[in-house]
Design a binder for these strands. Structure first.
Lengths: 233, 233
DNA sequence: CGATGCGTTGATAACTTTCAAATTTAGTGG
DNA sequence: CCACTAAATTTGAAAGTTATCAACGCATCG
């Protein structure tokens, strides 16, 4: 048995209007029944760069899976500051909620295609298929683990946070030493709890230490992984 | 279906030797089947103040529930710094893992009694009882939500973190405006990602602002809840 | 070309840590 | 119950880190 979704609003109208502007990125291979089932049951919806996928306090009616592009979830504080809670790459699932409403907002970082699945459908599926039920539980556990790692990251110094971030993107984004950052400095800063100036400066100092090489602002090369891991402290 | 536990080591010998030194604190009322089942199936084990309950990288063979006292989970960084990831009060469950080994260590903050339940037993129970299965999922979701809130907390300024912490303890610890802090300043600091000196100074400034009153270092009175909430920003 | 968004760089200010010392509290034994 | 010792907390001054404010460079796009 899984939590019953609170079914309220339908698909957000502004989301339907948006169209992608670039070709899809390759979808990360998935080997689990949940992702496959979502792919079959869900509707693909395109989102323009910087457009909202869902907003804080809206009814959590859907579960989302990135098909192409990149998504951020975040919260805006009363003083206007923004904290990015998570980045989601192709193949990853986001928007899981345990109450009736979203506690975070979500936006497309790049033009993106997102699979939407009714939360009630996922719930029903989990009720009938123990494997799905377990995967939902495991997914939540992985998300918890990731959030715990973020707690451990956020108490470190700027250089350690940025070095960790670079390595995280390198590992999640795929293989190879050339990594593409889908998000601007501002997003990295809000993810790491720093300012964009500090992120820029630290990236520069990492390059000075020959740990990385900055080809363009969105493309960097890992030059010395073990050094980076040391700088993570 | 739930994750199969990796059964390896038995109960840690040093834990068995320890005896409580003070009377039990009242157990928070629980209205869920999981906690009740754990209470029935589990063995109560006493831990002395500052003694280890489990250690990082040990096989995660048990799930734990605080019966009395207070527990902290934490990680030690390579440079010796410690980050406390969670505090657990009577009635709360800790030690849930999704891999085979503990990713954190756990210690008793005060003398404590902890109920240990075999992870395999919880797994079996969840497999046979959908309600238990759901509660395990819900528990993980609450833990995730709590960890997310901590991410949002750790990017704020010292005063906001301390104000949030005071209010969190007030809400979790029970009713009333007189709150008892079970943990020393050092633990609060390591939980909030600050130094103990900063925690002490901020508490002093909160008292100066008549938001709180510090009776003793472990006992403070909420004087102005709404002001505290503002200072949380 | 000028406008705009994004990124870098520099100087200064604000905040937190670090190091040190004083003070209070708690635990223990007489 | 008091004195004594150790631990915890508070307080102060200086140093370090990051944020803030400001200017500049560099693309893209109309």
């Amino acid at each position: 048995m899984l939590p019953q979704p609170t079914v309220r609003a339908s698909v957000r109208p502004e989301a339907i209007r948006q169209m992608p502007q670039q070709a899809d990125q390759p979808v990360v291979a998935e080997h689990n029944a949940l992702a496959q089932a979502m792919q079959l049951m869900g509707a693909v919806m395109p989102f323009l760069r910087n457009s909202e996928i869902f907003g804080e306090n809206e009814p959590a009616e859907y579960v989302y899976r990135v098909q192409s592009g990149c998504v951020r979830t975040y919260k805006i504080f009363s003083d206007g500051r923004r904290q990015i809670v998570g980045f989601y790459l192709p193949g990853e699932i986001f928007g899981l909620e345990f109450g009736g409403e979203h506690t975070l907002s979500a936006e497309a970082i790049t033009d993106a295609k997102v699979v939407l699945v009714k939360r009630s459908a996922v719930t029903a599926l989990a009720g009938s298929d123990p494997a799905i039920c377990f995967e939902l539980y495991a997914l939540t556990g992985r998300e918890l683990q990731r959030m715990q790692d973020r707690v451990l990251l956020l108490v470190k110094k700027a250089q350690e946070r940025v070095a960790s971030f670079v390595l995280e993107v390198a590992e999640r984004g795929g293989s190879g030493n050339v990594i593409t950052l889908p998000m601007p400095r501002r997003d990295i800063a809000d993810y790491l709890g720093l300012t964009l100036e500090t992120v820029s400066r630290v990236l520069g100092s990492l390059e000075g230490a020959t740990a990385i090489e900055i080809l363009t602002s969105r493309c960097i090369v890992l030059r010395n992984r073990s050094l980076l891991k040391e700088l993570m402290s």
